[in-house]
């Protein structure tokens, strides 16, 4: 079945059967924030949210992840059990689902596979949730997305008020749909209502810039004088990169306790001066100017050249969380 309906009164049952198949990671309310976490029970699910504070990338690429434990003596390494149990991510907004496909470009490149990421990724079904209530900071339509975009999803759910319209996207999504829900067939009027709703939401997110054009313009803008001033307000706190669903830079550190310890992989940021500091003292990105330029150039030019898509999905988190109101839309628009 490709499309179907779940009535909201049945959603708990659906989540419970998903939980029987494996871990379900979904939006929950915690301290006034919506965050993705493993559901302890179907009650904890909260699908009435605009978007989560942090993106669900943390599930595949945790903020800190143990690569292995060791004993210093004789360099004894104890590889971890790498999680590969089936799981389901539920309620992922289209921008964040698309971001997962961009992380795939890095962690699943043909030459080197990040097994920690991939073992979870290949055993996880992604169920998306169409966007019905975009925020003023959303700009997915400027970066090739949209409220009904299914990139990165196995299945899309769309909130039609008292019911969800279900659309299976991939073979895995179809299989799940047939296994799971005694889904009612979607009536024609629901399909046409869903389409109209999508169009309405789309019209609420007018494109802020043309990513293609900006990407091309940036190619020859490394020395542009815009960089001299555009970073001036920035504090270098790196909040923008930590909340970003596509940022994937990390550090590797050893955490010791006496004669043993663990090597961890942890989020890092190009907005920090230490990121590129050589031991000799040389630093190719000395000031905020070079670091802001790296962040923007990487997202809108380098990543595009290497992987065919800009590394921004327009989720707007960096705009919402920046303590000094830096707006990435304005920054890139300086190059339009």
């Amino acid at each position: 079945m490709d499309t179907g309906i779940i009535k909201k009164e049945n959603i708990k049952g659906v989540i419970e059967s998903l939980m029987q198949m494996g871990k379900v990671v979904a939006p929950t309310r915690q301290d006034d924030m919506t965050v993705f976490s493993a559901l302890p029970s179907s009650e904890a699910l909260d699908l009435n949210y605009t978007n989560s504070k942090l993106s669900p990338k943390d599930y595949f690429f945790p903020q800190t992840e143990v690569l292995f434990c060791y004993e210093k003596e004789n360099n004894q390494i104890h590889p971890p059990l790498i999680e590969d149990k089936p799981a389901c991510l539920v309620g992922v907004r289209p921008c964040d689902a698309k971001a997962i496909t961009l992380l795939d470009c890095i962690f699943n490149d043909p030459q080197y596979k990040d097994v920690y990421y991939l073992n979870k990724r290949k055993n996880t079904v992604v169920i998306g949730l169409a966007c019905t209530n975009p925020q003023s900071t959303c700009f997915c339509t400027s970066t090739g997305g949209g409220p009904l975009d299914t990139t990165g999803m196995d299945m899309l759910w769309q909130d039609l008020g008292d019911r969800y319209l279900i659309k299976a996207v991939t073979p895995q999504g179809k299989e799940l749909a047939s296994k799971l829900f005694g889904i009612d067939k979607a009536p024609e009027k629901d399909l046409s209502y869903a389409k109209k709703q999508g169009e309405k939401v789309l019209s609420m997110i007018p494109p802020a810039f043309e990513a293609e054009k900006i990407s091309e313009k940036l190619r020859s803008s490394f020395e542009d004088s815009v960089w001299e001033t555009i970073h001036e307000k920035c504090l270098g706190c790196a909040a923008c990169t930590f909340v970003c669903p596509t940022c994937h830079c990390f550090d590797i550190q050893d955490e010791n306790s006496r004669d043993r310890g663990r090597r961890v992989k942890l989020w890092d940021s190009c907005m920090f001066p230490l990121f590129t500091l050589h031991t000799s003292g040389h630093n190719p990105r000395l000031s905020g100017k070079e670091r802001m330029r790296q962040r923007i150039m990487h997202k809108f030019n380098y990543f595009k050249v290497n992987n065919g898509h800009v590394a921004c999905v327009g989720c707007g988190r960096c705009i919402r969380e920046c303590p000094v109101n830096m707006d990435i839309r304005q920054i890139v628009s300086a190059f339009s």
């Binding site: 890095i106 030459q111 550090d251 590797i252 590129t276 050589h278």
Partner: peptide, 17 residues
Amino acid sequence: MRMKCGFGKCGRCNIGN
């Protein structure tokens, strides 16, 4: 360049693309 992973993941050693 300063490096961590050595195989194109950690994102710290780039010059341009």
